[in-house]
Amino acid sequence: MAAGGDHGSPDSYRSPLASRYASPEMCFVFSDRYKFRTWRQLWLWLAEAEQTLGLPITDEQIQEMKSNLENIDFKMAAEEEKRLRHDVMAHVHTFGHCCPKAAGIIHLGATSCYVGDNTDLIILRNALDLLLPKLARVISRLADFAKERASLPTLGFTHFQPAQLTTVGKRCCLWIQDLCMDLQNLKRVRDDLRFRGVKGTTGTQASFLQLFEGDDHKVEQLDKMVTEKAGFKRAFIITGQTYTRKVDIEVLSVLASLGASVHKICTDIRLLANLKEMEEPFEKQQIGSSAMPYKRNPMRSERCCSLARHLMTLVMDPLQTASVQWFERTLDDSANRRICLAEAFLTADTILNTLQNISEGLVVYPKVIERRIRQELPFMATENIIMAMVKAGGSRQDCHEKIRVLSQQAASVVKQEGGDNDLIERIQVDAYFSPIHSQLDHLLDPSSFTGRASQQVQRFLEEEVYPLLKPYESVMKVKAELCL
């Protein structure tokens, strides 16, 4: 049975990233139509530049190519590739079939990587351009969430054990800070992308030097003109047959890092959902379990974690691919890159769409948070109580021993009897502590235990987050809708 299948058929496997999760716009960027249309555009740009620099290419040939950029006979191309065992030459023939007058000058002087690699770089750039505003929107939604809850005390956790208090907004800023680093890295790697350009079979530009009869300047002009037509500021000066596969490492490393950030955020949300302090959106008709109707599973956060793990592992592909590119190139890269580049971007696209949807509907339960604080705060307040007693004339050592005994009794009630923490009640009825009984409410005010959390939130948002989001103001209103 021949390899390949009808990918629109229910009898043929289709990647869930495309069929179930990723956005239509990201799927289109990695589609065959987008790819092969870009090949034709690159052939047109090459012909236009070659004509401008004096090669015998007519206006009629150029116009014929322009008129057929979208006229792609995919069936013919597939048949040609089956016959020739070469995808680029299959599309040269297919393009030439609908451009008979231009057929002889299509791909003039070029090698397969002229269309293959340059198209990949265009796709990487455009895919990054799709991700950047999506990530900015996630940051914006979380920034709104953090600002609104900047002063809401909550129990902090280290080692997932109760620690000092923080605020809900401050905790959210930990998430935002990681995503801001990801946004900066995505922008950097996007701006650092260079075009492969017009380089020939081993990167020496020998074929173009021959076409222009040894004119170095025209060869350099050709490279520059096509690079500018493709919208790049610069091209690699040095290439082998391909652009260095280190570029793929750079791009997928940034995406993998984004995956790590999203995994951490969504894990926190899942843990908070278990504590009943916070939940992701839950639709009115949504079913959490087929057997347990009360369940409210954090399905979206779980999906993000599941896909983020996949995204983090994909960076190993370009690392290994770059390491086995012998001399000017081997074909070890080809099949692998067809999979890992598309999957990385479709996965990143999915987790950003999902995280935006989550961040637009996060639900906080202040009463649950308050109750958990009441359970733990008495123990945390013991040092403040000791200091207040010393100020009232008591002995630190005597007070410490009193607190120690009462704390152990209260802990026994919590752990052995399943009761509430009654340390404060014990202190309130103990005559030894009568000098500070009137101060206990103040000493137990949760806001006095959150330090500068709310001020940190305000400063972080104003100095770091809002300036970073400013270039994306025009796209901030787009909502994230999930079908599944």
Rank of each mutant, 00 (worst) to 15 (best):
G8S: 13
G8Y: 15
Y21P: 06
C27Q: 11
R33P: 05
R37T: 11
W39Y: 11
W43C: 11
E48M: 08
T52F: 01
Q61M: 09
L69S: 05
D73W: 07
E81A: 00
R83N: 07
H86A: 03
D87G: 04
M89W: 02
G96A: 04
K101H: 01
I106T: 06
G116Q: 05
T119V: 08
T119N: 14
L121N: 09
R125E: 00
K134W: 06
V138N: 07
S140I: 01
R141T: 13
Q161A: 02
G169E: 02
L174A: 02
L179N: 02
Q184C: 07
R188A: 15
V189R: 12
D191T: 14
L193T: 04
T204W: 12
T204E: 01
F208L: 10
Q210M: 01
Q210L: 01
F212M: 07
D215M: 15
K218T: 08
L222K: 06
V226N: 01
K229G: 05
G240E: 06
I249W: 14
E250A: 10
S253I: 15
R270G: 02
K276D: 14
E283Y: 12
Q285G: 11
Q285K: 13
I287E: 08
S290T: 06
M292V: 13
P293H: 03
P298D: 15
M299G: 10
C304R: 07
L307C: 14
R309T: 10
T313R: 06
L314N: 03
D317L: 15
P318H: 00
W326Y: 11
A335H: 00
A335C: 03
I339P: 09
I339T: 11
C340I: 07
I351Y: 02
Q356W: 08
E360I: 01
L362M: 14
L362C: 14
V368N: 01
I369T: 09
R372V: 13
Q375H: 02
F379T: 09
T382E: 07
G394N: 09
S407L: 15
Q408D: 11
A410D: 12
K415E: 15
K415S: 13
E417L: 14
I424Y: 09
R426T: 00
P435E: 05
I436Y: 09
S438Y: 00
Q439L: 12
P446A: 01
F449R: 06
T450Q: 15
Q455R: 13
Y466F: 08
L482V: 02
C483E: 02
